[in-house]
Design a protein around this nucleic acid. Structure first.
Length: 798
DNA sequence: AGCACGCCGACT
DNA sequence: GTCGGCGTGCTC
């Protein structure tokens, strides 16, 4: 039998399967989706079996050397999905499969040099290496040319062997347990003086279950010696058992029962239940305003799927994967839930993944990559906050979780639910066209009112002489909440507003030497940092351009807002949440729970506080600079602004107290800000669609972004122009090819970047054309100078 | 990605 | 004459 194997070599020349003979003892045992180790040229590497066939076209096939899995890591469905995904995203099949397995299982190869004879036969220069040991790792060498050459020579003569070791990174965690041994015995056999032994044995017998050694000794206050004697005498036996790490630290979740659905919720869930009952695929867009009870709809739809013996996948944006969120699912479905988030260690992720693969859990809640959960009988897929851009992966394979969800939904003939208060234009347009099934959920539970929104014109404030970053209204409201003992959230969108350093005399702005971007001032280290390449330098005393000492930082970072805030409201207790204060693991939760306990009056933060925040005492939300996002060069900037404003507004007045929102803006009349007042998504959708139509943007067209980079500017321009010419020639008349133009970030890490854009409706030969480009430049790409990245349906234009 | 094969310049 | 540079092509 022959196994077709995708080998662990990420290059376009090896992006296909290779045939290997299945050793006799494995025939009929190993299945597709298993990881194996195979010989590949002179080395040993890892690979995935994607197909098993009777025969090979090759005269000579080498045998598989090792089989790594008892249960295949990829299901038949995932093998097909990976194939589809690699085609969709123009990435290697290998990369697609690696995406689907936990990092702990990804191949790691180490090279070792084994001494085969006495070291006296070796060239003198490498003899010292083998003084003590007869095997050394490749990493232990200093990569000296003469040394390498000597080793190569010795290996050719057979004195040394260069061995490739494929390691598994993931280690199963085991713990020692004891239980009563099978052979019957009498307690009386133990001499009376051995009271401790008797006591311990009795305890073990009475428990009737295997006991963890560490906890047994702790509970009984016995020593290890007593237990060892019992084991020696054969009364109890000790064994190792594989255990799962506990990422939730043994937290018990209080069981919750399904809530009575409101009329609107029942209406929304009915078509989903129909789809489940009929075992049919359909994509639903659940358009539910904040506080409309979307989650309860999810929970009950999941319960239905589980009752049919099927499984559920729930995606949430990483940032809202908070303990509160997890609690809702664990509370309803208990230990049937596996959770994936970036805070888990590699081992913990591996454990969660294995629970799924072994059918020990039936619900998975996680960020983007949880969409690849290796379930075999999926009954429902839910994507919460479907408009979030974090569902698109910004590195190869550049896939969108929504597309994968729909692919799997078709495969399993199950419903896919996209939920959002502010759906993406793409999804809403599809829902209106009838491609998706629209489920409106427009009322808040308990008929709670939407927060009132007040847009403040900051130009007017300036005219009236208010030069601070707080409008008079906002300041008054903040004072009001302080006296009432209520809480406020201040939101600062840092994007495009970072603290840059400028000379007041000549206007010089400190920029990174390797990237075309201004450096950001970090107060804690009193240093300037590049947010793209990590370059760091100390804050200059004088301007490097004119020598003036009038150099200082500008812009409104959260740190600066905090400073100002303490000046105008010295009595307010402020918690600041941004990248700086939440870098340490767990500090995010710590700050939030402190705020929840009322240890502060004002929560000041960036992006990360826009979601999931749900505290009863928050009655005021302030947005300091609503338009900071509006002016970035991205056709989705208005959409993002509206979504963010709605999202942030949703933080206020979620409980009994009414909420108020103050949005400060320099362009208060822009529809993306104006329409937040009425929370009018419909109207926003209409306005934005007409803009997209005029500009020829999605959802009216599909897009491809090509990013070309090279250390030499002339080369980038040259290649980019050739590519554009080629595209214009190959693609159809109606397709628009734009560029080449310098990327918004024209240089990163000393590489110049150009881009070109393709807008198309129908382009059957597109994939082929793009592959041809990659193929044509393969030499330059392999040499490491040129890079061409292709992003189908891009979300980032930097 | 690695590694071998192979074809042209500067050296014992 | 050879050693070694790295361009080209292969890995079942």
């Amino acid at each position: 039998m022959i196994a077709k194997v995708i080998v662990d070599v990420p290059s376009s020349q090896t992006d296909r399967s290779f045939d290997y003979a299945i050793p006799e003892q494995w025939v009929d045992i190993i299945q597709e989706g298993t990881r194996v180790i195979v010989p590949f040229g002179p080395r040993k590497i890892q690979g995935f079996i994607v197909e098993i066939t009777e025969e090979s076209e090759f005269k000579q096939v080498k045998p598989i050397l090792e089989v790594l899995d008892v249960i295949p890591v990829l299901t038949a469905e995932l093998i097909r999905l990976g194939d589809w995904l690699s085609k969709q995203t123009l990435s290697f099949k290998l990369s697609a499969y690696q995406l689907m397995i936990p990092a702990a299982l990804r191949a790691k190869v180490t090279k070792e040099i084994h001494l085969l004879t006495d070291s006296v036969h070796l060239p003198k220069i490498i003899q010292p290496l083998f003084k003590m040991e007869n095997r050394i790792t490749w990493g232990a060498l200093n990569e000296n040319k003469l040394v390498l050459k000597a080793i190569q020579e010795a290996a050719r003569e057979g004195f040394l062997e260069i061995a490739y070791l494929v390691e598994e990174k993931g280690k199963k965690k085991t713990e020692r347990f004891v239980r009563v041994s099978g052979n019957r015995h009498q307690l009386d056999d133990i001499p009376a003086r051995a009271g401790k032994q008797k006591e311990l044995l009795t305890y073990i017998e009475e428990t009737k279950q295997p006991l963890k050694v560490t906890s047994l000794l702790e509970e009984t206050q016995m020593t290890r010696a007593t237990l060892t004697t019992l084991i020696k005498k054969g009364y109890v036996e000790e064994f190792e058992k594989e255990v799962y790490r506990d990422p939730l630290g043994g937290v018990e979740y209080e069981k919750t029962e399904p809530l009575q659905l409101t009329e609107k919720q029942s209406e929304a869930i009915a078509p989903i239940l129909d789809s489940l009952n009929q075992n049919m695929h359909d994509t639903f867009l659940l358009h539910g305003v904040t506080g409309s009870g979307k989650t309860e709809v999810y929970l009950q739809a999941i319960a239905k799927a589980l009752s049919q013996g099927r499984e559920a996948i729930v995606l949430v944006p990483e940032i809202s994967l908070t303990p509160q969120m997890v609690q809702r699912f664990k509370g309803r479905f208990g230990s049937q839930v596996a959770v994936f988030h970036s805070g888990l260690s590699m081992g913990e992720k591996y454990d969660e993944w294995r629970k799924i693969r072994r059918n020990e859990v039936r619900v998975v809640v996680g960020a983007r990559s949880a969409i690849f959960a290796p379930f075999t009988n999926v009954g429902i897929i839910i994507i919460d906050e479907e408009h979030e851009t974090s569902y698109k992966q910004e590195e190869n394979p550049r896939y969108h979780a929504r597309d994968v969800a729909i692919w799997r939904g078709k495969e399993h003939q199950c419903p896919v639910i996209l939920g959002s208060a502010t759906p993406s234009l793409e999804s809403y347009a599809r829902a209106i066209k009838g491609v998706y099934h629209l489920l409106p959920l427009t009322e808040r539970v308990n008929n709670r009112a939407m927060p009132t929104v007040n847009v403040v014109d900051m130009r007017e404030e300036l005219r009236q002489g208010n030069r601070s970053m707080f409008s008079n209204v906002l300041l008054e409201q903040l004072k009001d909440r302080l006296t009432k003992g209520e809480q406020a959230v201040l939101f600062l969108n840092r994007r495009g507003y970072s603290t840059f350093v400028m000379c007041r005399d000549c206007g010089y702005v400190a920029t990174c030497d390797h990237c075309d971007i201004s450096l950001t001032y970090h107060r804690t280290q009193h240093a300037l940092k590049c947010h793209y390449c990590g370059h760091e330098e100390k804050m200059p005393e004088t301007c490097s351009s004119c020598g003036s000492d009038h150099i200082r930082f500008f812009g409104s970072g959260t740190q600066k807002v905090e400073e100002e805030l303490t000046k105008v409201l010295p009595e307010a207790r402020v918690i600041r949440m941004d990248i700086d204060t939440t870098r340490r693991k767990g500090s995010h939760e710590k700050l939030l729970s402190a705020f929840g306990r009322g240890e502060a009056d004002i929560l000041l933060g960036t992006q990360m506080i826009a979601k999931g925040l749900d505290f009863p005492k928050i009655t005021l939300v302030g947005v300091l600079a609503a338009d900071s996002m509006l002016h970035i060069p991205d056709f989705r900037s208005a959409e993002r602004t509206f979504q963010l404003m709605e999202q942030v507004s949703g933080r206020a007045g979620r409980h009994d107290l009414a909420g108020e929102v103050i949005i400060q803006s320099y362009t208060p009349d822009h529809y993306s800000i104006e329409l937040v007042k009425a929370h009018d998504y419909e109207r926003f959708f209409q306005m934005e669609m007409s803009q997209r139509k005029v500009g020829v943007y999605p959802p009216y067209v599909y897009m491809v972004l090509l990013n070309i980079s090279h250390p030499e500017l002339t080369q980038v321009i040259h290649v980019s122009e050739k590519i554009v010419t080629f595209l214009k020639r190959e693609l159809s008349e109606q397709t628009v090819v734009l560029g080449p133009v310098a990327s918004p970030l024209a240089r990163i890490k000393d590489r110049y970047r150009y881009q070109c854009m393709i807008k198309y409706r129908n382009e059957s030969g597109l994939r082929k054309t793009l592959l041809e480009i990659q193929q044509h430049y393969i030499r330059e790409i392999n040499q490491g100078q040129l890079q061409i990245s292709i992003d189908m349906q891009p979300y980032m234009f930097t």
